[in-house]
């Protein structure tokens, strides 16, 4: 235990002397989360729509539905502005009195918004009593898209930065010759791995706390569950990243080669973490997610923050993450055999 403590203390001392790395670990996730929030929570886009020979009643309805309506004298000049990108859509009336719509069409999300707006406008004066009363089982009417994938991002950034730092610092231990020196002392291989877990774990916990506090209290991310569970999952995710990072560093011979693991190990996990709809994927592709730690972490984080899930709901994810960490740590102890048989 004394040797584990000594190793953990050394890692802490190294961190405290290396302010820049500490800042990367603690502040970079906050910066990126803030940027994401600003990018995704901008104002609602207003749709600019050109009309030509449209009955004024319909124009007024479109206006009521929230479109920025510009009336043109003839269809040709409206289409001209559509080509120039000044309009999102042009609506006109055909010979048979049916309205006809031309969409700009290069951005599917805008096209959908236009169609939705026109539907609403054409539905017209349906009396308000006919509309159903809406209640939300989870979330609320003012929940933004950032609230929905924010939990995933929190997990992702904890994972990413811890993976990178743990990988690089364990690699440096090897390339600087200190690992060889360490193995000439009576320290056991499992004590090395545990020492790294404790030393880095402390910073991972600090990072997890900071990210959780910042995203809920400062960014105002939607959060209905327990902050304790949120921290727990974030910590488990960091431990997985830590053990995976140190394990993979055994197969890298330079810092650059650690960076090369990012597109192989990190990026694919982002695809399966719930940022994109898994149900829309090929069934065999969906199955890939079972080997991705981030999938479990993100699933639990979303459950806790949006659906206020308790231990019964998240325990499976927690155990799987714990299992990943244990397996990676064990493999790490085995990988150290390469340097000393004892």
């Amino acid at each position: 235990m004394m040797r584990v403590n000594a190793l953990a203390l050394r890692i802490i001392q190294q961190f405290l002397r290396d302010r820049r790395t500490l800042a990367l670990l603690l502040l970079a996730p906050l910066l990126i989360l803030t940027l994401m929030k600003l990018v995704f929570d901008g104002q609602a886009v207003t749709i600019t729509m050109g009309t030509a020979q449209l009955p004024s009643e319909l124009s007024a309805r479109l206006d009521d539905a929230g479109a920025d309506v510009r009336a043109y004298d003839d269809l040709e000049s409206a289409l001209e502005d559509l080509r120039k990108g000044k309009l999102e859509a042009v609506i006109t009336r055909q010979e048979n009195n049916q309205p006809a719509l031309t969409l700009e069409g290069s951005d599917p999300s805008k096209s959908k918004a236009v169609l939705l707006l026109i539907q609403n406008a054409l539905r017209g004066n349906v009396s308000t009593e006919a509309l159903p009363a809406v209640t939300y089982l989870h979330g609320s009417s003012d929940m933004a898209s950032f609230d929905s994938f924010g939990p995933v991002l929190i997990g992702f950034f904890s994972f990413f930065f811890v993976f990178l730092l743990a990988g690089v610092s364990f690699l440096r231990e090897r390339t600087s010759g200190t690992l060889e020196r360490l193995l000439a002392t009576p320290i056991r291989r499992q004590e090395i791995v545990t020492g790294y877990l404790v030393g880095f774990g402390l910073f991972a916990l600090l990072q997890a706390t900071l990210i959780a506090w910042f995203s809920v209290k400062v960014l105002g991310l939607y959060m209905t569950g327990s902050i304790g569970y949120m921290l727990l999952i974030n910590l488990l995710l960091s431990l997985t990243a830590l053990t995976l990072g140190t394990l993979l560093s055994s197969f890298a011979s330079s810092e650059f080669q650690i960076i090369q693991f990012i597109p192989i190990v990190i990026v694919p996990q982002a695809f399966f973490s719930g940022l994109f709809n898994l149900d829309a994927m090929n069934p065999w592709l969906q199955k890939l997610s079972i080997v991705m730690p981030l999938y479990y972490g993100a699933d639990a984080m979303r459950g806790i923050m949006i659906r206020a899930e308790g231990w019964a709901d998240i325990q499976q994810d927690a155990y799987v993450l714990l299992g990943f960490s244990a397996v990676f740590a064990l493999l790490n102890v085995l990988a150290l055999r390469k340097h000393r048989k004892l």
Partner: peptide, 18 residues
């Protein structure tokens, strides 16, 4: 095989504890 960021004493303390 020394930890460059650490002081001489911190290096000695670390190895001594091992």
């Amino acid at each position: 095989a020394l930890y460059m960021e650490l002081s001489g004493r911190q290096n000695m303390m670390f190895f001594g504890k091992l």
